[in-house]
Design a protein around this nucleic acid. Structure first.
Lengths: 191, 191
DNA sequence: CGTTAACATGAAGGACGGTTCCGCTTTGAT
DNA sequence: ATCAAAGCGGAACCGTCCTTCATGTTAACG
């Protein structure tokens, strides 16, 4: 077995990769996960071939973006764990923060809403997120402010619904994701 | 202006139309709204051309099915109005009945979840449904068992989320629409 | 500089799925 | 039985997108 001498990645290639990720984020945010590959390449001022050099498939690009999204959500939810306030308020505030960020981005909505492949990737961000949410739940239940039977899966389920409602609203339906969250969170709270 | 003598629709044509609707319902239930036209025609033992003779577009077929779905849902919700039981229980039972029927059918989920074109048709079924739901809400609020600020739009929103959760569950996601409904309905109830 | 491997390009390829079209068949009225 | 209109079939058409590939370009290293 010999050591293969890898030439370092070329500087322009790295730049292009970053431009592609940014362009994809923008295109997906605007048009949802079925934004066209050519549009993404155009926004990055790059040929489609270049896109395919960096990502073997459009799907791979989506997964990369999804992972990025989940990392950010996990950041938000983990950060909230340090907040010393009322357990319920802290949890609810974190959810609202995540939802507000997601609602402005069609792709987030679709990913949170459960895009088949992006979700199946049991990725680091998702695991961090699940763990942080679990801690929030345990705390809130300990303080008696969250229904005792609530689970991490319940939160996932609610956010899945949220993603779709927000996406539908963006698409013109007369819906209000704000009401959705208010009601769902109330349903999660102890009465 | 002369009276145009319309020859009555031929018997075989009527049969084919019915077979097409049934086949479409089956195909959509199984594969969702993006079931293929050719598959629908095949199930109806008919050529695609025949399908297009009866429905100018795949979309038209979807709208026809959607209208049928909404009529049925309206039937269920209207029927519940005659129930003399506790206002909340009656309302909740009607929602559960609708949800249970819908959860078994991918197309129902997608339509309830807010399929763009099928929803925009401010059709008879939808109007009946909205009106019946409005009556339920007014009654429950009058009895003090539903949050005072709940609206028909809130129910639509919740069912939109439901549709997506149920569809995702059918597609293999580890979600539980049962939990979703339980929590959302709790959030709608007076505490 | 010169060399070379990595990289970029975008037109062409290919798969997929809705829709059209025209020749053939069936119905129903005379 | 005959005929015209209505209906039927399904191969071909067409638009849309993702992906590939042959060709030209560029960064990095000696």
């Amino acid at each position: 077995m010999s050591t293969i001498a890898h030439r370092p990645q070329r500087a322009d290639a790295r730049r292009n990769r970053e431009k592609l990720v940014a362009a994809a984020a923008a295109a997906f945010a605007e048009s949802g996960l079925d934004a066209q590959v050519e549009d993404i390449a155009r926004r990055a001022h790059v040929g489609v071939g270049t896109l395919y050099r960096h990502f073997p498939t459009k799907e791979a690009l989506v997964v990369a973006l999804a992972e990025q999204h989940f990392e950010r959500i996990a950041d938000t939810v983990e950060a909230a764990l340090a907040d010393p306030g009322d357990e319920w308020d802290v949890f609810a505030a974190a959810i609202w923060r995540v939802a507000t960020a997601a609602a402005a981005d069609v792709a987030w909505c679709e990913i949170i809403g459960g895009h088949p492949s992006a979700v199946q990737a049991a990725s680091r961000g998702q695991q961090r997120l699940a763990s942080a949410v679990g801690t929030h739940i345990a705390r809130a239940q300990g303080a008696g402010v969250m229904r005792a039977d609530a689970t991490v899966e319940d939160i996932k389920t609610i956010m899945c619904g949220f993603g779709h409602v927000a996406a539908a609203q963006r698409a013109g339906a007369e819906l209000d994701w704000t009401r959705y969250l208010a009601i769902a969170l109330d349903g999660l709270r102890t009465r």
